[in-house]
Design a binder for these strands. Sequence first.
DNA 1: TATGAATGAGCCTTCATTCAT
DNA 2: GATGAATGAAGGCTCATTCAT
Lengths: 193, 193, 193, 193
Amino acid sequence: MARNIDETKMERVKEAGVTLIVNKGYGGASVSAIARQANVAEGYLYRFYNGKQDFVADLLHTKVGFLIDKLDHLLNNGYSIREIITILIGEIFSMASERPEDIKFLYVLMHDYNFQISHEQRKKIKVICEKAIRKGLETDEIRESITLEDIYGMTVLYPIIFLNLRLKEFFGMSYWDHTDQARIVNFCVHALK
Amino acid sequence: MARNIDETKMERVKEAGVTLIVNKGYGGASVSAIARQANVAEGYLYRFYNGKQDFVADLLHTKVGFLIDKLDHLLNNGYSIREIITILIGEIFSMASERPEDIKFLYVLMHDYNFQISHEQRKKIKVICEKAIRKGLETDEIRESITLEDIYGMTVLYPIIFLNLRLKEFFGMSYWDHTDQARIVNFCVHALK
Amino acid sequence: MARNIDETKMERVKEAGVTLIVNKGYGGASVSAIARQANVAEGYLYRFYNGKQDFVADLLHTKVGFLIDKLDHLLNNGYSIREIITILIGEIFSMASERPEDIKFLYVLMHDYNFQISHEQRKKIKVICEKAIRKGLETDEIRESITLEDIYGMTVLYPIIFLNLRLKEFFGMSYWDHTDQARIVNFCVHALK
Amino acid sequence: MARNIDETKMERVKEAGVTLIVNKGYGGASVSAIARQANVAEGYLYRFYNGKQDFVADLLHTKVGFLIDKLDHLLNNGYSIREIITILIGEIFSMASERPEDIKFLYVLMHDYNFQISHEQRKKIKVICEKAIRKGLETDEIRESITLEDIYGMTVLYPIIFLNLRLKEFFGMSYWDHTDQARIVNFCVHALK
DNA sequence: TATGAATGAGCCTTCATTCAT
DNA sequence: GATGAATGAAGGCTCATTCAT
């Protein structure tokens, strides 16, 4: 099916985009380099996006959406906060092991002032965090003073930042194992109470 | 005195650099735009730096150095961990109020893969964190499982991230007050134990 | 056909390059001036060459290759040294009449320290000159003491230099005719014996 | 004496100019690099010349003037053509051995379309060549068909070109000795008759 | 007289984007 | 739909030149 072919192509383009942006930065990842790496014509991308900026924004949207869906799903299935954090961090660590490019990509673009997470997604994140706080207050796993930023910071940002400190060998260490993962879980759970 | 004029000019260039990088990203902050905003000739920057990359690296080095000096000074003056965190976060919040561009700049560049904090500065940060852990273990303000990344994350990264979430109006809020500051202090202190 | 258009364009660029380099020197012939004169976009050249230097080197390579091919062909067809010199100089004079820019270009770049004739072409020239000497010794048209430099100097360099002295009106004369050509032939033949 | 100091400085600037132009080309020899190498202020040169072009033209004028004076002196002292050629070529070979930069400089700039030898000097060269021809005709050392270009080419240009072919290792050889020098003398003498 | 800080025009080059095929 | 040749604006950077000191 023609449709199928297309999606394969666009998938290749997206992967190439992530890889190149992570390794060379936004400016260093030229559209033609992305196309070349994806084995696609230079102009191909413009059939789906209005431009490079649009393309990258969509990439971010997808990756963030993936995390949001995870979180959302976890919250709606009766898990405890600790369980949620355990599973989510497990997911993030898996992502880092299997597709380190993705975790780097999230890390870089979430901290950029040129690529904000969309209003709609921010709203979703807010709703999720509010729900989590409510649930945590009920189960006594989250103390009163915890805010939206604390929840978001501890469940999503902190694990991502930790992994990138390792990927950057910030303190000289470049790998991680299940001990690290378990430790981070405990750290985050404890931070919220 | 001619000398005096120089320093004013370079200061203007640096300020313009920070502002533009924060608002337009590294690639979007063209040398000529920086020069224009600083009211300086386009070639001026190159009398002091080997290039744009060099210039921005120095900017980052200075801002990070400022934080390191603060931390270092606090650790060597017999403050408790809580005191240190209180003062440091106070410092960071002041910076955010007085020169929000600076805190944005740190936020953006500390999370970039193209601008690593220099090896030398990373080393210093490591030494400081190690010292802090030792001291915290003694005074029982830091629990055993705390690592370098935890200390660094809670004392430096988390406050910066919090402020930028506000500056970006991530959850709809764009300001902060002393209550927030006190809360962050407590959060960080508690997270480490 | 699209292909056809290309070649015309690149041809125009090359011509413009030769003209401007001859008249303004390498440094004075800016890529944008070349593009403008060729009625081509500024970036066009970079689709075929890695840079200006690469472009000019290719120009030189082509022009020199043309001469080498001529020489090679003449040597392999049983002509006497006098005949070879006569034909070659005829060729050079024709080139000077029809495309004086080309002869100027050769003159300028062959005497530059920034654009050496490629190793490969120098090798070919050497082989050709050696062959010529052997043949000349056999036919008694070249005396024993003649060296590679002498042969090369008299058959290629001297005619080119003569023509450029005229083109520059070095001694006040700016044209030449068949008498000059015949005289140069005799001069060169006689110089070698 | 102040005057004396000046001349030393300017001499250094000129030397630096020759060296840098020869090694990096006209465009590659920046005024500031020349000044730096001469240990002189960047603006110094402009107290004596209207600009870089003017400066280099003067350099060429001086070097060419040196040759002209030599030639002129030789012609006015009753030497035979062979003696003149012998001495002149000896001079040129000495220059190449002692200050190869100078011979490269002459080679490069004499073949440039941007730096013509001055009208006045060309006139002098013409007069000298005419005188030489007259004398050569008398002593039967120059045959009838020899022209101004031939004389100039054989006495001045050919030796310079030969030496530069060696300096460029055009045919793989990079040095020369007295045998080469003697051979060139004979070659030139013979070429003129 | 000599300096060298400062300028800014202009260079080479890249690359996002368009559009005829 | 898909291509990739072509564009040209814009970028980083250099450097000849000026001029206040």
